[in-house]
């Protein structure tokens, strides 16, 4: 079964084996001629299962089992994320909140509290803060600026909006006893960004990803935030980064 969607202003046709991925992406359905057609096979699903098991083993936890239709949603996004960098767009693992129409993107190692912190923004600022994507937004990195796009791949809490906003600031979150926000340089940010960006299997696409991250770190203000996951951290972060 085949449906067409718009992700980061790109029309993508998804030809899937199971209906679940179409339900998952339903908010992004559109008409139009696709620039990319993603076709999933059982081999793609099996590859996702192996990858997930390898990650579980590498992190020393029991291997989890997942249904084929869930793994297919991952396979679809992997194919999209492989294709996007050569068209100026990357997938970055993080939580993106739009505040008064401008995006603030928080990235960190898993378990640091990105989602918790992003939720504090909504609690502190109400309708001024909109969750663009709580897990895997797409970033279009153009010479005239960076735009953050919502996607259906939005984490276990399923928090996202089919919307886009210019990126105002990017913040690396770390746990700390007290909340503190400091500007950082590109070379300070890059090691973590390279761990959080989707790294394509294709060498040319990875090279494009590195060029795009270079552009991102040269054009967007970068910060590091020590954060104790207190709700007040949202206001402190916003005041430090709003400029």
């Amino acid at each position: 079964m085949k449906e067409t969607y718009r992700f980061a202003e790109t029309v993508v046709a998804v030809d899937a084996l199971y209906p679940a991925v179409h339900a998952y992406c339903s908010a992004y359905r559109c008409a139009g001629t696709p620039a990319l057609t993603v076709q999933i096979t059982q081999a793609d699903i099996d590859a996702e299962r192996r990858k997930s098991a390898d990650e579980d083993r590498a992190e020393g936890r029991p291997v989890r089992t997942f249904a084929d239709d869930y793994l297919e949603t991952l396979a679809v996004y992997r194919k999209i994320a492989e294709w996007m960098p050569l068209r100026g767009t990357v997938l970055l693992h993080g939580s993106a909140v739009a505040m008064d129409g401008e995006a603030y993107l928080f990235t960190a190692k898993s378990g640091t509290g990105k989602s918790t912190h992003a939720a504090f923004w909504q609690a502190a600022f109400g309708s001024r803060a909109i969750m663009i994507n709580d897990d895997k937004p797409l970033l279009r990195i153009a010479p005239d600026g960076v735009t953050v796009f919502g996607t259906p791949w939005d984490g276990k809490h399923r928090r996202s909006s089919n919307c886009a906003a210019p990126l105002h600031a990017l913040c690396i979150l770390e746990r700390a006893a007290e909340t503190q926000v400091v500007p950082i340089t590109a070379s300070q940010a890059m090691p973590l960004l390279l761990q959080q960006v989707y790294r394509p299997a294709d060498q040319a696409a990875l090279a494009a990803t590195l060029r795009l991250l270079d552009r991102l770190t040269q054009t967007v203000p970068l910060y590091r935030m020590g954060c104790n996951l207190a709700p007040s951290a949202a206001v402190i972060a916003y005041e430090a980064m709003k400029g």
Binding site: L194, D202, Q203, L210, T217
Partner: peptide
């Protein structure tokens, strides 16, 4: 892929490499 920025050099693996770190 070898990558340099501001005096920092890194070796970055593609998603198909057996190594996932830097």
């Amino acid at each position: 892929i070898a990558y340099d920025t501001e005096g920092l050099s890194m070796l970055v693996p593609t998603g198909s490499a057996g190594f996932a770190g830097l």
